[in-house]
Design a protein around this nucleic acid. Structure first.
Lengths: 204, 204, 204, 204
DNA sequence: AATGAATGAGGCTTCATTCAT
DNA sequence: AATGAATGAAGCCTCATTCAT
């Protein structure tokens, strides 16, 4: 018997007061998660840290999972938002230039709250984070971009290519951000990633 | 709050009976993990499934974390073992050929128990799996191999290159095995991965 | 631990609006009770179902117990009211005839809302239903009736007799309504009950 | 969504120690129920009163409902057992004599623990007490007894008759025990009940 | 008068771990 | 060595009730 029932918010806060409550709760959750880790995250601790009663927490989040879910969604939204302006007006650019923009976008997204991002990925049971909507969005963008220049591409299987590029970007950046932050100091890593993908994609 | 000290097995089972007990416990753990997931994994359940008393379990594993750790280690050992024969006599081969062997090795390793591998990565709190010794081993191999042919390589920063190659192989294979198993049916994915890395590594 | 003081309505609704609110609340309570049972009955749920704020509910009912009490009282009133016209002009009738009327009255009363009646008896903590005023009333009627014909009665202990007749009627009808509704289809059960009581009461 | 899952004991206590634990728990439950009522009955309180940890309670009873259920069953068993010897060798007796024995049996059963009996009936949600197996047993006895003498009976509908007799005995005794214990001091009430039922049953 | 956000005591239950046998 | 009964801290969550607006 997996997943609870609904992991969606219980009610929409209408008044300003409740809006503040919800924000305090999410903020407290973030703090506890990044400062002490997932296994210290209890609903009572969140409420206390948020300066809110435990009852209030459950007024807006039907269970612990929903709380995490909302936080993950919120975080994903922030990442997407921050990535947005790197991903505009790409149509005229060359493949390496576009890749550069995408890499920059993903890096920017990871800069939102790397600690939280890491905890969400490493400590929180996957079921609770689920489909990060940003990934679907990212895939769509990438697909459009590659499809549009399929004549310039060396690989023929578009679907496979998308998988490879997306995974590579995500994994390398994620790995660098989390395990080798020093690599991000200079632009070298970024450049190398672009080179690798460009060489792979572009017809020689 | 049990304050974990050592997370290493309490005693080395020397007798056959003990050996059997430990194996039963690890096997039961694997089963529960793959069939019902990490959050169904309780030490009592493991003992019951192993046909062993809970007391006996704690005779061999000082705490739950040690149990998981032993399992992860065991699994890693199996993976390494299975990967071994793909990684012998590589010195005479060309870079693409070596890459092919490495990719094959990693794929073989992932075939040991993909379900368990996935659960270990996605559901088990990271701290409990910790240093997968295989990674260190893999990195050493890769470093040796690349260092030895540094004159043929296009990238100059060896450290960065190792990071990129290792992460890419690991991430793509992991992603394919877990999320897109259909990609593994044909050799296309494997080939594509080798192409991408070769093109990146080899001086044109 | 709210320490119940009064369990009587907080204020008598004088205005039409208030009257409507109270009715909506009682109606919602009835619905929840009969549709989902006592343990689903929460004051918040009642308010929501009544289309009224929880605050308003507490304006009219000082606590949950008072709410239940009012409902029980209301239900009892309805039962009594429905039983009334079976219990008029009994003075000239013979004992079996009077018994028939009483039985009919009790049956009619049980027909008001059998589901609610059952829930009130089976699920609601007794303390909260307390003195059903109708019982006192019924007993008085019965006492008057029997006292008036004590010379025709076979049993000599009037008090005991009242207890026996009242309990028997109540229990049998209650049992039939709740557990054996098919018995009520024909008049057989009714007849049998009257026979039993008549034979018991009347001097041979 | 009614009833939990299983309301049956979690494990059979094998050792003497656990047997004692179970008994202490049931005994504590009885005490709390009779001394302070159902709404004071919490699992933690039971455990504390039993001098047992809360964990032990849940080792033997999967949830609160199962605890109540076990208690009710245990109580029913005791009642049946105590009633037994009043209900042997009835075949040769006359109808009034048999009724006397049955009445005595039911009275004896109610004497086991009247306070508990009352609480079980009045305060505990019905679902949790459920089919008191004793009733089924009682009905079978009664049916056999009446069927065997159907030629001496005045009522013709055996099924209906059983219902009437059983309900009457149960209700009157229950009512007397709970609300009018003074009636039980003399044998008058008992006698009256037997008279009523005899007159009803026996052909004139 | 009404609203509904907020409260918080406390209930039920789990599970890693210990220890007497 | 093994057993399994026992432990108890602590987690999640409900719901009657209050009170600021």
């Amino acid at each position: 018997m997996p997943s609870k029932f609904s992991a969606t918010p219980r009610k929409q806060p209408k008044q300003a007061r409740s809006q503040a409550t919800v924000e305090a709760i999410l903020s407290a959750t973030t703090h506890i998660l990044t400062e002490t880790g997932y296994d210290q995250l209890t609903t009572n601790r969140v409420a206390e840290r948020a300066g809110v009663s435990i009852g209030s927490l459950y007024q807006y989040f039907p269970n612990k999972e929903a709380l995490i879910f909302a936080l993950a969604e919120h975080h994903a939204d922030e990442m997407v938002q921050l990535a947005q302006h790197h991903l505009e007006g790409l149509s005229d650019l060359t493949i390496p230039e576009v890749l550069r923009q995408i890499v920059k976008a993903v890096l920017a997204a990871h800069a939102v709250n790397p600690k939280l991002h890491r905890v969400l990925h490493e400590q929180v049971p996957h079921r609770e984070v689920m489909q990060r909507l940003d990934e679907a969005k990212a895939e769509k963008l990438l697909r459009a971009f590659l499809a549009q220049r399929s004549d310039q591409l060396q690989p023929k299987n578009l679907d496979l290519t998308i998988f490879m590029v997306e995974q590579t970007i995500r994994a390398l950046i994620h790995g660098a951000v989390n395990d080798r932050p020093e690599l991000l100091k200079t632009g070298e890593f970024e450049q190398e990633l672009i080179v690798m993908l460009s060489t792979y994609l572009v017809k020689r």
